[in-house]
Nucleic acid binder design. Structure first.
Length: 668
DNA sequence: TCTGACGTAAACATTT
DNA sequence: TAAATGTTTACGTCAG
C-alpha cells in the first residue's frame, strides 16, 4: 500500500505535465476509486469527504509540482538516492505513512532548506501580490465549500432520490471539485512562478521557505498542512480502498493525533457506518463535545479573524493554518493579553465603584453569605432597616416627587449578589403587602413574564388572593375564579394544583380579611380591606422610625423586579428587556406610583370615604397613613402614629402603603 | 429562645 | 356519590 503510493507519485510526476489536467485526473481517479468500491455510490457524500478529497488532491498537486520542479529546475539536483536518509525519508514516508513523520518533523525539514537571497528578494517583492491572491483563493474556497455543503445537505435531505439524480449530483460535485482543484493548482503554479515554491530536488516535500520574523505566508503554511493532512487522507483511502472513508477522519478529526485519526478511520471503516449518518452525527457530536474558546457558532473567535468554520474539524484546520505559532499570532496574543488586563482592570474599578455605592447606601456588600437571600424583600427590609439605623439621612426620607426617589432602589444584593440567585425552591418569605410592594403594578408590568416563566410570584397567597379579587370587576370572585386567576396569571400555578389550591382555600378561611359572601350564583369571596390592613404593621410597629425608613426605602422600589431578574438568572431565562417586560424599578416608577395612588383613591371611593377633593394624592396618602396606625389597636398604640407622623414630611409620606391602604381607613 | 407570619399537608365537614 | 368547597389543625421554616 505504501509502496503503491510511492510508485503512483513517480508515475504521476513523469506522466503528467499539465497541472490542471493532472488535478482532473487525480480527481477522476479518486472518484473512480469510489465507484470501484463495488458498491453503489453512496448518496451521502459528506462535505468532509469533499474536503478530504480536496486535501488529497492538493497533496497530489504538490507532489506533481515537486516533480515538475525537479525536472525543470536548474538547481543542483542530486540524485534522490544520494540524499541523506534523514532528508530522503520524509519524501516517501511522509506521503505514505503520516504516523511516522509528524508535522513538527516536516517543519524541521522545511527549515533546513536554505533560501537564497534572490529568492528572498522575490519573496519580499511579491508577497503583497501573493497575499491578495491568497485572499481571493480563500474566498473562492469558502464559496465553493458553501455551495458544496448546501448541495450536500440537499442531497442528504432528499431521502428517496432516484439514482440518476444522485449520479447527476455527484457529477456536479466532481465538477465543482475540479473547479476548486484547478484554481488551487493555478495558485500553486503562481506561487511557483513567483519563486515561493522553489522546490529543491531531493526534497520533494512542499518547499515552503521559513521566512524570517515569522513571515511564512499563511497560505504556504496551509499548503504544508494540507499536504501533511492529505497524507492521512490518502493513507486512509489507500488502506481502505475507499475515499469515502475519508469522512471517517472527519468524525475523529477532533483528535489532533494523526495516529488516532488513522485508527479511528480504520475502526469506522470496519464498522460499515453510513457515511452520511456518520457525518451528521459527527457534526453534532463535535459541536457538542468540542467546546473551544476560540470556536463558537461556526466562527473562529480568534481576535480579528471571524473566519467561518463549518465544523470543528474545519476550525481546527483553520486554527492550525491561519493561527500557527508565528510573530503575528504572538503579537495578537500579546494584544489579547493586554485586552484582558484592561478588562480586569475595568472590572476591578467597577467593583470598587459598586462597593462604594453600596457603602454609601449602607447596604451590605456582596460578601458571600451562607444562606442565600434573594428574591426576598424581607431581607431587604432588614438591610434597609439597618442602614437607616446607622444613618437615617442617607436615605431620601422626603422625596417631593414620585420620580425623584430613585436612589433607594439600590437593593443591590438582591440583584447583584451571586449568592442571591440560588433560591429556586419554595420561597418562604414573600413580599407581603405590608412591605409596600405594589403587587398590582408589578403583576401588571411583569404579566408576560409571570405567565410564561414558572417563577413563583414573590407574594403571599393572601396578597395574591386579594389581588385577584380586587382585579375583578365586582371585587368578588368565586373560589374557582380565584383558581383561574392564579393559573391564568402565573405559570407557576399551573402545576401542583392540589397544593396551591389547598393553600388558597386555607388562606381564604384563615384570614379574616377574606369574607365569604353568599351570592345568587353561589358563594363568592371578597376582601375586607380593613381586616387586611390589620395584618400590616406587625412587629416593626414598635419603632416608628424604622417603619418610616423601611417603608421609605421600599416605597419607590419594586424588589420584585430584582427578584424577577434573579429568578430569570437562576432559571436561565433570557432577561426580559425593558421594552418587553418593563422596568418597574426605575422607568416605570412614576407609573407604578400613579397606579398605587389611583388604587388608593379607588379604594377610598369604593368604600365611601371622603378623601378631600382638594387634597393631592400625596396629601391623601399622608393623611391616610397618619390615620392608619390607630386603626390597628391590637398592635399600634396611639403615640406611635403620632411619632410616625411627626417624622414624616408633610409633602409626601413614603411609608405609605399605596397598594394596600384604602383611604377610608382614616374616615372611620 | 420566643413569637408571628407564612407555606404546606392533611383531616374533616359541608355544599354542589 | 363524587367532587368541589370550606374549616381546622399541625408542623416546619424564617425572620424579628
Amino acid at each position: 500500500m505504501m509502496q503503491e503510493s510511492g510508485t503512483e507519485t513517480k508515475s504521476n510526476g513523469s506522466a503528467i505535465q499539465n497541472g490542471a489536467s493532472s488535478a482532473n485526473h487525480l480527481l477522476e481517479c479518486s472518484l473512480r476509486e469510489v465507484r470501484s468500491n463495488g458498491e453503489t455510490p453512496s448518496v451521502e457524500v459528506s462535505a468532509a469527504d469533499l474536503t478530504h478529497l480536496q486535501q488529497q488532491q492538493a497533496f497530489q498537486v504538490a507532489r506533481q509540482l515537486l516533480y515538475q520542479q525537479q525536472q525543470a529546475s536548474g538547481l543542483k539536483s542530486p540524485k534522490r538516492n544520494d540524499k541523506p536518509a534523514a532528508l530522503q525519508a520524509p519524501v516517501s514516508v511522509a506521503m505514505m505513512s503520516p504516523q511516522v513523520i509528524t508535522p513538527q518533523q516536516m517543519q524541521q525539514i522545511l527549515q533546513q532548506q536554505v533560501l537564497t537571497p534572490q529568492q528572498l528578494q522575490v519573496l519580499l517583492q511579491q508577497q503583497q501580490a501573493l497575499m491578495l491572491q491568497q485572499q481571493q483563493l480563500q474566498e473562492f474556497y469558502k464559496k465553493q465549500q458553501e455551495q458544496l455543503q448546501l448541495q450536500l445537505l440537499q442531497q442528504q435531505h432528499a431521502g428517496k432520490q432516484p439514482k440518476e439524480q444522485v449520479v447527476t449530483q455527484q457529477l456536479a460535485f466532481q465538477q465543482q471539485l475540479l473547479q476548486m482543484q484547478q484554481l488551487q493548482q493555478q495558485h500553486l503554479l503562481n506561487l511557483q512562478r513567483q519563486g515561493l515554491l522553489s522546490i529543491q530536488p531531493g526534497q520533494p516535500t512542499l518547499p515552503l521557505q521559513p521566512l524570517p520574523q515569522g513571515m511564512i505566508p499563511a497560505e504556504l503554511q496551509q499548503l504544508w498542512k494540507e499536504v501533511t493532512g492529505a497524507h492521512t487522507a490518502e493513507e486512509t483511502a489507500n488502506n481502505n480502498h475507499s475515499t469515502l472513508d475519508l469522512s471517517t477522519t472527519c468524525v475523529t478529526s477532533s483528535a489532533p493525533s494523526k495516529t488516532s485519526l488513522l485508527i479511528n478511520a480504520h475502526a469506522s471503516t470496519n464498522g460499515q457506518l453510513s457515511i452520511g449518518t456518520l457525518k451528521r452525527e459527527s457534526l453534532s457530536h463535535e459541536e457538542q463535545t468540542h467546546s473551544h474558546p476560540l470556536y463558537g457558532h461556526g466562527v473562529c473567535k480568534w481576535p480579528g479573524c471571524e473566519a467561518i468554520c463549518e465544523d470543528f474539524h474545519s476550525f481546527l484546520k483553520h486554527l492550525n493554518n491561519e493561527h500557527a505559532l508565528d510573530d503575528r499570532s504572538t503579537a495578537q496574543c500579546r494584544v489579547q493579553m493586554q485586552v484582558v488586563q484592561q478588562l480586569e482592570l475595568q472590572l476591578s474599578k467597577d467593583k470598587e465603584r459598586l462597593q462604594a455605592m453600596m457603602t454609601h447606601l449602607h447596604v451590605k456588600s456582596t460578601e458571600p453569605k451562607a444562606t442565600p437571600q434573594p428574591l426576598n424583600l424581607v431581607s431587604n427590609v432588614t438591610l434597609s432597616k439597618t442602614a437607616s439605623e446607622a444613618s437615617p439621612q442617607s436615605l431620601p426620607h422626603t422625596p417631593t416627587t414620585p420620580t425623584t426617589p430613585i436612589t433607594p432602589v439600590t437593593h443591590g444584593p438582591s440583584v447583584i449578589t451571586t449568592t442571591s440567585i440560588h433560591n429556586v425552591g419554595p420561597i418562604r418569605r414573600r413580599y407581603s403587602d405590608k412591605y409596600n410592594v405594589p403587587i398590582s403594578s408589578d403583576i401588571a408590568q411583569n404579566q408576560e413574564f409571570y405567565k410564561n416563566a414558572e417563577v413563583r410570584p414573590p407574594f403571599t397567597y393572601a396578597s395574591l388572593i386579594r389581588q385577584a379579587i380586587l382585579e375583578s370587576p365586582e371585587k368578588q370572585l368565586t373560589l374557582n375564579e380565584i383558581y383561574n386567576w392564579f393559573t391564568r396569571m402565573f405559570a407557576y400555578f399551573r402545576r401542583n394544583a392540589a397544593t396551591w389550591k389547598n393553600a388558597v382555600r386555607h388562606n381564604l378561611s384563615l384570614h379574616k380579611c377574606f369574607v365569604r359572601v353568599e351570592n345568587v350564583k353561589g358563594a363568592v369571596w371578597t376582601v375586607d380591606e380593613q381586616e387586611f390592613q390589620k395584618r400590616r404593621p406587625q412587629k416593626i410597629s414598635g419603632n416608628p422610625s424604622l417603619i418610616k425608613n423601611i417603608q421609605t426605602s421600599h416605597a419607590y422600589c419594586t424588589p420584585l423586579n430584582a427578584a424577577l431578574q434573579a429568578s430569570m438568572a437562576e432559571n436561565s431565562i433570557p432577561l426580559y428587556t425593558t421594552a418587553s417586560m418593563g422596568n418597574p424599578t426605575l422607568s416605570n416608577l412614576a407609573i407604578a406610583m400613579r397606579e398605587e395612588l389611583n388604587g388608593v383613591m379607588e379604594h377610598a371611593n369604593s368604600n365611601g370615604s371622603d378623601s378631600s377633593p382638594g387634597r393631592s394624592p400625596m396629601q391623601a396618602l399622608h393623611h391616610v397613613h397618619v390615620k392608619e396606625e390607630p386603626l390597628d389597636p391590637d398592635e399600634n398604640e396611639g403615640p406611635l402614629s403620632l411619632v410616625t407622623t411627626a417624622n414624616h414630611s408633610p409633602d409626601f409620606d413614603p411609608d405609605r402603603d399605596y397598594e394596600d391602604e384604602p383611604v377610608n381607613e382614616d374616615m372611620e
